[in-house]
Write a protein that binds this DNA or RNA. Structure first.
Length: 753
DNA sequence: GCGGATCAC
DNA sequence: TATGGTGATCCGC
């Protein structure tokens, strides 16, 4: 009894402040040691004190809950149990295993982008952010306990070698756009929507973790075949092809961006999200669509892994000795007496492995806000003028989206980290700076007055608008996809009056990219009779990269491709690994020597040979002529892009805090992209030092000499040329004709300046 | 409708 | 020296 309060307090504190190792790449760390450092760094700070306070509040909630629990009678429990069972049956009946949901997640996105663009970062623990706050960290840093949402100065204590790179949001946005273009190829919105109800949707978030979610109906299967819900007959075929589609998609992402993505495939969104974490980084996991598999998967899954269960909910559940999802099921009766109806509903669904099987159509924005953190601000005049500034910025943002709202909220955080919000709702919707400020100013004044004679000591101020009135004036100018999503928001899955929708295509399903690519390779495989190469590395379950067919017959080619996943765990040099000893490998397709130690490079070489061969074949078949100009254009675009990104990096930063910590000397400056400068007036560039010198390489697609001796770079060039062609071709068949896919990103980068 | 809190990214 | 910004949702008034 005596030590009980102390213990709960300590644990409580830890649960709030301690390392959250829920993230991928953080397994098996020395938590005690890390937590000690975190505590030592935090203790005594205002932040710490506030966390402590909040934690005590949570503890009180738990106490209250435990008290409630103690007062529950057997009769109540029994009744609840009956209810739960009824509910379970109903939910079970609603289980839908017929959908396939793919959740794709970029691996350590921001960090990966920075590593891609700065060779020296690749081998270092690094994070994106500032001394005050980190957005994300790479996997090397995670081994030290360094993770997102951790202040940089603490991270530095955990790992003194940590390199902190300031964020380049414009760059990340540009990369997001590139990736989105790939998703667009799989986005069945661009497919004619069949009358089948199982439509597919791609949803893309541009956040730290780019997390698109893809609904897919069985690709490639004849329309009729699909109707057999849950029937396992076609399911295997189905599963295989979906996995390949996802591999293909991830492969394309890596080709295009040199970044890796992970994916989860499952019958619903909740599970897919968990699955995407399972083989992170650079992996994917498919949960078979059977009740058994799902329940098995759920069994030992910690509740904290479920989206929506955060540290507070976790702690409350833990107090009831619920740590795993299976416990949720076992304790549902109790939970139904302690938690709200919505919470219970959610718990129950989780315990049954159920989740959303459809994505709510693009929902209307419900609020828009802006907030800023700063050093202590106590002067009322300054506070008012800051408030005005915020209102001005918010009004601008509102204008961009043509929004008007009735509710204005003011958010204040004082230097003790205590947060307060004050709101007022008007009769009419407003949007202009003056209108917003008129309200916000009053709210602020009230708070200042309440505090007098003491000043408000603020560290954050924010203004939010909500209660928007619906405005229909923007609909006509919507782009295709948005227009579609909008029209679908009624809940019905019909397409109403979508202008770019072409009903003539409704009956002929488009082949997805992966299908085409696979067909190409298959065709090629037959025609080239690729000779065997000695297998390298073990065949992991993640293998079979995009080509089960090749695997079946030759085996050898895919074996090499598979080696992507045969890399040692922990380190994933999947794009441009540089090892010590160069090696001569013989390409089974073109029989030429490839000098490299990096199997990925070799893989790409083979891939490109295969692609080239099939491209040539197709050319002669369909007399389609590849547009050389386009390829040249692309090279130029890439040059520009590189130049811009260099300029971006070299531009002087205002404050000392924002100066780049990346230890680049400037002389090597992102070798990968620089080599694309061949066509322009730039001088030849440095290559990766581990590569041997090779003679000039000529791109077999655009026939331009590439002044590089780095095969990875050369291959990437060729891939891009090829990709562009495929995409070009794809576009010809689809209704989305808005933007060229490959080159576009370059201009987005330019915008940052 | 308001305000505090939780959660995700 | 130093612990973010944006949007959503829920719960209890």
């Amino acid at each position: 009894m005596d030590n009980e309060p102390a213990q709960t307090k300590d644990e409580g504190f830890l649960s709030r402040m301690a390392l959250n190792d829920n993230k991928a790449g953080m397994e098996g760390l020395d938590r005690d040691k890390i937590n000690n450092i975190i505590m030592e760094s935090s203790k005594g700070s205002k932040f710490y004190e506030n966390e402590l306070k909040k934690d005590q509040q949570v503890n009180q909630r738990i106490e209250k809950m435990m008290l409630q629990k103690a007062n529950i009678t057997q009769a109540q429990l029994k009744k609840a149990q009956a209810q739960v069972e009824k509910m379970t049956l109903a939910l079970e009946r609603s289980r839908d295993l017929s959908r396939v949901i793919v959740h794709v997640d970029m691996d350590a996105f921001y960090a990966a982008v920075e590593m891609r663009d700065c060779a020296e970062l690749k081998t270092k623990p690094m994070a994106v952010g500032s001394m005050s706050m980190l957005s994300t960290s790479n996997y090397l840093a995670r081994k030290y306990g360094v993770r997102a949402a951790m202040p940089g100065f603490i991270a530095k204590k955990l790992c003194s070698d940590l390199v902190i790179v300031p964020p380049n949001f414009d760059k990340y946005r540009a990369v997001s756009d590139e990736i989105r273009e790939i998703f667009a190829d799989y986005d069945p919105h661009f497919l004619p929507m069949s009358l089948d109800e199982k439509h597919s949707i791609v949803k893309v978030n541009i956040d730290e973790d780019l997390s698109p979610i893809l609904f897919k109906e069985s690709p490639g299967s004849p329309p009729g075949l699909d109707g057999s819900k849950g029937a396992n007959g076609g399911s295997e075929l189905f599963g295989t092809s979906v996995e390949e589609a996802v591999r293909e998609m991830r492969f394309r992402i890596e080709q295009k961006t040199m970044l890796t993505a992970s994916a989860g495939i499952a019958p619903n969104m909740m599970l897919a999200k968990v699955c995407s974490d399972k083989n992170k980084p650079n992996g994917q996991y498919r949960l078979p669509p059977t009740r058994e598999a799902v329940m098995d998967f759920i069994q030992d899954l910690p509740v904290r892994k479920i989206c929506g269960i955060g540290k507070v909910s976790e702690k409350m559940l833990n107090a009831l000795e619920i740590t795993k999802c299976s416990h949720l099921g076992q304790q549902m009766a109790l939970l139904s007496l302690l938690f709200s109806e919505t919470a219970c509903q959610n718990f129950m669904e989780v315990s049954l492995g159920l989740g959303s099987t459809r994505i709510s159509r693009h929902e209307e924005r419900k609020s828009m806000s802006i907030e800023r953190t700063f050093k202590e601000l106590s002067d009322a005049e300054e506070q008012f003028s800051l408030c005005r500034e915020l209102c001005k910025d918010l009004a601008e943002d509102m204008k961009k989206e043509g929004l008007k709202g009735k509710t204005v909220s003011l958010k204040l955080k004082n230097v003790n980290f205590e947060v307060k919000t004050r709101a007022q709702t008007l009769q009419c919707a407003v949007a202009a700076e003056e209108e917003i400020f008129a309200v916000a100013k009053d709210l602020l004044k009230t708070e200042i007055d309440n505090e007098s004679p003491h000043p408000l000591k603020l560290r954050l101020m924010g203004v939010r608008m909500s209660a928007f009135v619906s405005s229909d004036d923007k609909a006509p100018t919507q782009k295709s996809i948005l227009g579609f999503l909008k029209s679908g928001s009624s809940g019905s899955s019909e397409i109403k009056g979508e202008p770019s929708y072409n009903p003539s295509q409704a009956s002929q399903p488009m082949q997805s990219f992966f299908q085409r690519a696979q067909a190409k390779r298959l065709q090629l495989h037959v025609s080239t009779e690729a000779r065997g190469i000695s297998p390298i590395g073990a065949c992991s379950k993640e293998s079979a990269l995009s080509s089960a067919a090749l695997n079946k017959t030759g085996g050898s080619v895919s074996q090499v491709l598979e080696n992507k996943r045969a890399a040692p765990a922990g380190d994933h040099p999947s794009t441009s690994g540089c090892e010590a000893r160069p090696q001569i490998l013989i390409c089974p397709v073109c029989s030429s020597k490839v000098e490299t130690t990096d199997l990925n490079v070799f893989n790409r070489h083979i891939d490109l040979c295969l692609n080239v061969a099939s491209t040539n074949q197709k050319k002669s078949e369909s007399e389609s002529v590849y547009d050389e100009k386009k390829c040249l254009q692309e090279c130029k675009e890439l040059n520009k892009r590189k130049e811009r990104s260099e300029a971006e990096e070299e531009q002087p930063f205002g404050s000392k805090e924002s100066s780049r910590v990346c230890p680049r000397g400037g002389q090597h400056g992102g070798s990968i992209q620089k080599v694309f400068l061949t066509q322009s007036d730039s001088k030849p560039t440095t290559s990766q030092k581990c590569q041997g010198k090779l003679s000039d390489l000529v791109c077999p697609v655009c026939h331009l000499t590439q002044e590089t001796d780095d095969l990875a770079v050369f291959n990437r060039h060729v891939d891009l040329c090829l990709n562009q062609e495929v995409l070009h071709e794809l576009k010809g068949q689809t209704t989305f004709s808005q933007n060229p896919s490959v080159v576009k990103n370059s201009k987005n980068i330019g915008k940052s300046q």
